[in-house]
């Protein structure tokens, strides 16, 4: 991995102060670094979601870049139209979708798949807080096994949908995962994604204090525990070739016990031992797949 330093991240801010995002919001933190990496010559396409909710109220906006709001399931399709219009007129402005996990894994999946299959020139960023946060934390396809949401009060019985594998099946030139708790890594991956033509994807774990039920000053810590325990893995694929990012390499060598990640969050309170074992098994499988793929000649 390249040596990242915080100093290469510009001081420019594209989110204005005092948005209505929750204290400790991982999503707004994610967006802050996405915009720092992308710079001002972009258009953000935003479906319904937490970010749309804290963008400000007309005639004001919390962002200093254009934001095209669009219906929940339509972000990638709307971005297709903008991207092709820019192509028609020779404009180099980058089109970036910024969508939550509901808008990506669930209601927006068809439009997303279509846009990737058509090789739309855009960057799609999924900020993943593992539930429908804006409507008060209902389960989504991204909610992990065992997590309590308002529609899975006993804990989710199904495992998280593997959107990254679905995206990989579209053979994008670049895809990556990131986490709001590792801003340098996120910054670098956004910069890199924007150097490719065609559809690129970054899936960012964005911890959510009210939804995950932890106190708001712990967002960075919770995100780091996700990575250190292996519940969230940081990696990138350039033309399909996997490169594991340093924090996950470290976790693969010596993960912190999963219980450390689960116990700081109210959403996993009362999770039974069998479910914890299933989650641990998932992590072992993921790491095993990574090792196998890395060892392949």
């Amino acid at each position: 991995m390249e040596m990242d330093t915080i100093t290469e991240i510009p001081d420019d801010e594209y989110i204005l102060k005092c948005t209505s995002a929750c204290a400790g919001c991982g999503d707004s933190l994610t967006l802050r670094y996405v915009l720092k990496a992308a710079g001002p010559d972009i258009v953000l396409v935003m479906p319904a979601g937490c970010t749309a909710a804290f963008q400000g109220i007309y005639p004001k906006t919390a962002f200093t870049v254009p934001v095209v709001n669009i219906a929940f399931g339509a972000a990638a399709a709307c971005a297709s139209g903008i991207s092709r219009m820019f192509l028609a007129t020779g404009r180099t402005t980058k089109v970036i979708v910024y969508a939550g996990d509901g808008g990506t894994l669930d209601i927006g999946l068809q439009a997303l798949s279509g846009a990737f299959e058509r090789r739309t020139d855009f960057l799609y960023i999924c900020y993943d807080n593992e539930a429908y946060g804006n409507t008060g934390m209902q389960r989504s396809g991204a909610t992990p096994l065992g997590a309590k949401t308002t529609t899975t009060p006993a804990g989710k019985a199904e495992v998280k949908k593997d959107i990254d594998a679905i995206i990989a099946a579209h053979n994008p030139p670049y895809q990556a995962t990131a986490c709001a708790s590792y801003p340098q890594d996120l910054f670098r991956k956004v910069r890199k994604a924007l150097t490719f033509r065609g559809p690129t994807f970054i899936h960012v774990l964005s911890p959510c204090p009210p939804g995950w039920r932890y106190s708001s000053e712990k967002t960075i810590e919770v995100g780091r525990l996700a990575v250190k325990s292996g519940m969230w893995a940081l990696w990138e694929r350039e033309h399909g070739n996997l490169a594991i990012s340093a924090p996950t390499k470290a976790a693969m060598k010596k993960p912190v016990p999963l219980e450390e990640y689960l116990s700081v969050q109210g959403r996993f309170k009362g999770i039974d031992g069998t479910t914890v074992e299933q989650l641990k098994e998932q992590i072992r499988e993921t790491f095993h797949r990574f090792r196998e793929e890395e060892d392949r000649p």
Binding site: P40, A53, Q55, G56, I57, Y58, T61, P66, V67, N69
Partner: peptide
């Protein structure tokens, strides 16, 4: 830059 379809 403007917001399009912003909360209103």
């Amino acid at each position: 830059p403007k917001g399009y379809g912003t909360i209103t």
